[in-house]
Nucleic acid binder design. Structure first.
Lengths: 173, 173
DNA sequence: CAGTTGGGCCAGCCATGTTGACCTGTTCTG
DNA sequence: CAGAACAGGTCAACATGGCTGGCCCAACTG
């Protein structure tokens, strides 16, 4: 389409047209990186007869004990139905327990049982191995950049929810 | 678990026990970042009645025109069956075409039709918007770190395949 | 020629997402 | 206090995209 003249010159250009190669590299690394991270726990999950959906629920409940069903729904961005199935299975297996909120008794506050916490910790161990190896091979300086780009991918409203994950988690009291 | 004394001191510690918070932050950002990147194209795909699986195939065929079915299989890490379904649909819709290899006529070399290339380009546009916004908000310095950590998540053997993606792509000749 | 390899395809299963409707309690509000 | 709004649960039905195992043909390779 472009004339035959310009042989890909140095192009500072409009920032919305960063060089395609850089974008493709990001897309691909994000795809493969994410794949390998998630595969790290598949074995452990399969051993318990659980799937990735179960792990996501376990993970966020571990991260924010006492969160409500609708908070979890909004984090996972799936439907009530889909979450319901997963949550039912997890409670039936004694990995998660729910108790009514005391300010609002309609709510169910979710938390892991001891067994659930042990499973989550074991799965997290696999994630930690992968990620900490990646952090190390990249160097500590790289980690900040890693975080910053990913934060930029998350829409502003959701960014707040994600950032809050760490803060509210009850300390080991 | 730790005594009440040490208020989270500077801890060079064993590298396999990086602070849990840093690992969890990485896990979460990777999860949400990946989610939002992939959601960026769902609308465009739905408009054509295609799914994410179709996009992955389109993407890699666009990236490496002329690759064989088994090369694509090894990139996607799914089974022949699963890929077969997707590839059949894409060829039936005239988005992908296959021709026998000339050195080995058992192979099917995959490439996009003009229509397929147009669709891939349109979808890529959505990805580019998201990612380039993220690159910008993070700053160019961050991008290298982003790449480095993700590369560290990919096992060495696969890393070669991924890195080769860019190089072999036929230039716009 | 025999064996391996690249690719295709059948039937069936499973996990996980979706919709839409409808029900129960609980809380909030006029 | 009555009615609306809300948190949550549940049913039925369906779509997508993985998976297995088996069997096939054509082509390449020793």
């Amino acid at each position: 389409m472009a004339g035959p003249t310009a042989p890909e010159p140095f192009r500072p250009a409009s920032p919305l047209f960063l060089r395609e190669a850089e974008i493709r590299k990001g897309v691909e690394l994000l795809y493969f990186g994410y794949s390998h991270m998630t595969r790290a726990i598949d074995e452990g999950l399969a051993a318990k007869g659980l799937g990735r959906a179960h792990h996501r629920a376990l993970y966020f409940i571990a991260r924010q004990p006492g969160l409500t069903v609708s908070q979890l729904l909004s984090l996972l961005a799936i439907t009530k139905q889909s979450l319901g199935r997963v949550l039912t299975e997890l409670t039936e297996r004694g990995l998660v327990e729910m108790r009514p909120g005391d300010r609002d008794r309609r709510q169910r506050l979710l938390r892991l049982t001891a067994e659930g916490a042990a499973l989550e910790a074991a799965l997290f161990e696999a994630l930690r191995e992968r990620l900490s190896a990646a952090y190390q091979s990249a160097g500590q300086g790289a980690v900040g950049g890693f975080w910053a780009v990913l934060e930029g991918l998350i829409p502003a409203d959701e960014r707040a929810k994600v950032a809050a994950l760490g803060n509210l988690a009850s300390p080991r009291t």
